[in-house]
Design a protein around this nucleic acid. Sequence first.
DNA 1: AATGTGTACTATATATTGTAATACACTTAA
DNA 2: TTAAGTGTATTACAATATATAGTACACATT
Lengths: 131, 131
Amino acid sequence: MYFHIDPKKNTPLYEQVIQQVKEMCAKGILKPNEKLPSVRELSSQMVINPNTVSKAYQELERQGVIITIRGRGTFISEELSQSVDPRQVEKVKQSLKQLIIDSHYAGISKEEFSEWMDEVYDEIRGDKNEN
Amino acid sequence: MYFHIDPKKNTPLYEQVIQQVKEMCAKGILKPNEKLPSVRELSSQMVINPNTVSKAYQELERQGVIITIRGRGTFISEELSQSVDPRQVEKVKQSLKQLIIDSHYAGISKEEFSEWMDEVYDEIRGDKNEN
DNA sequence: AATGTGTACTATATATTGTAATACACTTAA
DNA sequence: TTAAGTGTATTACAATATATAGTACACATT
């Protein structure tokens, strides 16, 4: 398993864990029903507090990414829910707008931005059916 | 001037101010050399602390969006710098990746995402040459 | 029974965020 | 010159978020 923490980033540790699990999951590196490292194991690997990992796992379960079973462990969910949450949609639209404006100020063209978008979508769809 | 604050959002107040100025600036609602409300005036409008507005203005100046002159006020910058900051580029790429992954979990398709992107770029380029 | 799971709880420390009040330096206009 | 309007700096305080530390509990597996 390839988890890593960047202490320089201002992103909270539990957020970094959440993002990495979701990313590996979307890219197909983590398969449905696959077992994740235990809270204590992962916290030991990352040299962070078990509570921090636990917090990340709980949020991931709330989002439907993983499923936790007492005494057994945490596992990748079968399938992601097809229901579209309107609030989440609005959040994404707002974030996208702000990101584009920021990138605009950073001197990034629409063409570059669009190209990066394609690259990400290639990653999360290409590896999905590998094994 | 159309500033507004959403207390429900978890985004910090000074961040909301920053985002709104940049957005209005990118959309051409705020023109170069145009005067912004004074720190006290805007803080009074928004019913927030003057320090918070000041913090937002200082960050906006650091980013080259506005220029402040002691005793006179703050004004929209002439032009945005063409220099591309590699660190900022990397930040944008990371944020884009995470945003796409999150939207993927929210059940949003690439087509929708791409369409929204086009809409935002239309907004920030279309109004730019109006007057 | 022993071990490995996730979880809950309290306590503590630090950084971020926001407010409050005051004062200062500068510009503009009366 | 004086007064009012600018941004800024400073100190203090409170609330919240983040992260750690230690302990304990409930459940599943072996």
